[in-house]
Design a protein around this nucleic acid. Sequence first.
DNA 1: ACCGCCGGGTGCC
DNA 2: ACCGCCGGGTGCC
Length: 993
Amino acid sequence: MDRQGACRDPVWKYFQSVQYGTHGNFSRLSHPTFLPRFEFQDVIPPDDFLTSDEELDPILFGTLRGQVVGLRYYTGVVNNNEMVSLQREPNNPYDKNAIRVNNVNGNQVGHLKRDLAAALAYIMDNKLAQVEGVVPYGANNAFTMPLHMTFWGKEENRKVVLNQLMKHGFKLGPTPKTLGLSLESSWSSGRAGPSYNMPAHVAVQMTTEQLKMEFDKLFEDLKEDSKTNEMEPSEAIETPLLPHQKQALAWMISRENSKDLPPFWEQRNDLYYNTITNFSEKERPENVHGGILADDMGLGKTLTAIAVILTNFADGKPLLSKRSKKNQPRKEYKDETVKLRGSKTNKEADGLSTLEPSRCSEEPGVSDIQENKKYPMSELSSFCPKRRKIAVQYIESSDSEEMETSELPQTMKGSSKVKEDTEFAHALASSASVTKKKMLKKGASVMKGSKKCDTGERTRTTLIICPLSVLSNWIDQFGQHIKSEVHLNFYVYYGPDRIRDPALLSKQDIVLTTYNILTHDYGTKDDSPLHSIKWLRVILDEGHAIRNPNAQQTKAVLDLEAERRWVLTGTPIQNSLKDLWSLLSFLKLKPFIDREWWHRTIQRPVTMGDEGGLRRLQSLIKNITLRRTKTSKIKGKPVLELPERKVFIQHITLSEEERKIYQSVKNEGKATIGRYFTEGTVLAHYADVLGLLLRLRQICCHTHLLTNGMSSSGPSGNDTPEELRKMLIKKMKLILSSGSDEECAICLDSLTVPVITHCAHVFCKPCICQVIQNEQPHAKCPLCRNNIHGDNLLECPPEELACNSEKKSKMEWTSSSKINALMHALIELRTENPNIKSLVVSQFTTFLSLIETPLKDSGFVFTRLDGSMAQKKRVESIQCFQNTEAGSPTVMLLSLKAGGVGLNLCAASRVFLMDPAWNPAAEDQCFDRCHRLGQKQEVIITKFIVKDSVEENMLKIQNTKRELAAGAFGTKKTDANEMKQAKINEIRTLIDL
DNA sequence: ACCGCCGGGTGCC
DNA sequence: ACCGCCGGGTGCC
């Protein structure tokens, strides 16, 4: 059986597509200008790209026996059957080929024997194969021990590896049935394990939805009691919790207070033993006092987290709503209460004097309430719909240097983001300025001095890190859900005036900040205050923000110290199992903190369809995550009873004129693409294909969207530099406007200052510059490994971007068939019920602009939300729309991808999807912004689809993708050629060839 | 004996 | 290491 597969088959995106026994070799497209974003396996542009491929090595080359020597010089010990890792030691003074052998903990056990090292060094240095070791027996030997090695690599490297070994007189042995896991035999009681036959399948193509389904399957049989107990929250919480939230609360608190060993560890005599790696040690491995709350969007993760904070406030006890009641002095903390009241005289201040704290001198009593009244929940900011105000401490800095943008992260510098963020910070702070007091902040030396007092001290502070887009949501929710008489020290660590004082921060109950701020602080030379505190608890909201292990952001997060750690995310596995690893390493789950062990014990086995690996993954996930979907049930009742959601497709017939334009563009394109078909170069000209499709999609919406014809010339090989430049810029514009995800493969975030490399890959300028800096002098493109250089990055000239929209505005406005249909529907709806609010969604922001005209003309009050808007404007727009008062907007123009997860637009109960998305999941996500908790009405979605057009064809493909959704983690085999053919057929379908 | 054999010293890379 | 390897002592049976 030919089991070819591409490393980049769609599963690659999800499960790293490591495939077993593959022979094919078109993993990388050789065509340098090929845009990996649009790899042929997936006409639907993939969600995003994984970054640097410290590529997994999918194929087992074979095994080898060797020796570990020099045991007596090192302290690292191993058990029989324990996994070890091999590490090159190029600077060893005795042998430049030296290879260290380390146990699971990273302690050196010995070295590989010299002759073996001589053969392996080359292989390891050039990453021709991943060599993994297990000590089969003889672990207690005094001088040397045997080593069983397994070689994994890419098919294309097999030969050179074998040759290299042969040159040194080594020959790989047969691949055993155990898939090289070898641990299997002993991890469940020492019997010879079940034989792990080569999986007879490779992973099947999966869409994001399918992946999610697969992930949810992992939870199907997990109905343990530990997750069905319910718990009432602290009385400080005003909002009654739903049953599933009470369950989450109980589970999370039990995890925070748990004394169990972490998963896969057991106690054996006086040792703690890891059943996966067979590693053991005396020291008790710390369990994760936390985990992953992976509830679907809209199930109230934020509220649940707030409940956890207040209910397991200190020493396993809740924060009471009236802290100052007699008999409930917060003994251990009362001395730490910092009062940031400028007007109060400052008494003894121990290093904090500049912050004017005063100590509670007496037993807290009634008077104390008043004294503490500084941040009552009843004075919360106008961010809360309920008109509560949150106690955000805002302290004006007198140090103007603090405000300089020079302090902002490199990556933010020069981008418009900075200004937005800063603006937003001011908006935030000023709205919270009820308690605003001028505070003088003097030199950092005082801070540092005071920080020292804090080190080692346990704080009661919870640090919450979230994306900027949900920062205000957190503030709102604290305001909404906590009783007004509860005093909570809450500090939004954000904006140029944020106080970088660990002493102040560690006296808060809650510190809220964003990933960007955290990362920026971490990157600056001075100690980041956030990193000098031992937090009681760190909560990562939208935890997949750290899914890229190489991102600075991830490093900053991983470096936080906390007793309890939580990740909130609706999508724990967004693209690949890899994503989970970042989360696990944040949770400090031994031994997975180290990539190698995660990879060897779970990721690769699972990807290859190995039962044991899947079992381990399941058991791991079961242990540390709680997940409910919208359709989950509690005691037979759905978790959420959402009103129905109906999707209608309304077919649109183009006007004669539109049709004429459509046909002419189509015919022209068809001729070109048809030529590619006959030449067999369709896939190589994929960008052109996309370009054509884009233009057709635009015409379906409005002929004014039609961007200047992409001349269909590809690279001819002997272009002048200027031609090359033009072509690349054109490509970049295409990528930016094609409606695919405009994400940078390095930061996995939306592109800020996009640049294109000569190999035609688009990144954020700051991101790619960082890469070039790090890898100099021989930087390689993270996507295709071609050489790149800082000098030949091309930026999109701003005029080019700007002129597009200007040109449009100069044109006289005309309607289009789709606009007519929309307006008809909206007007009819208004007649029926003027209170109903609608979302009008498109991928083309210029289209949204075109829609503004008739909305105005017909007297609609509307608002707009798209990716280009400043954060402050977004918040305003959302609040304005969510407002239900008379005269509030009834229509929101929404760009498909605007707003992060968690965007709540439940005031709308109608959605008009103006154009189909490549990715059906993106559509669903958009619908969910109004079909979510808080939605009281039936949600009706109308998709406008132009008859007899590319849009209809897109629907067809969407549907077949959905139908494919049956497979399990790789139960279907997909032949590479089949796949290739399938993609070509998709293109055929799309343009009716 | 420019060998073999013996037994002591010695030991990762 | 109850090994291998090294190099010095030694040398018929």
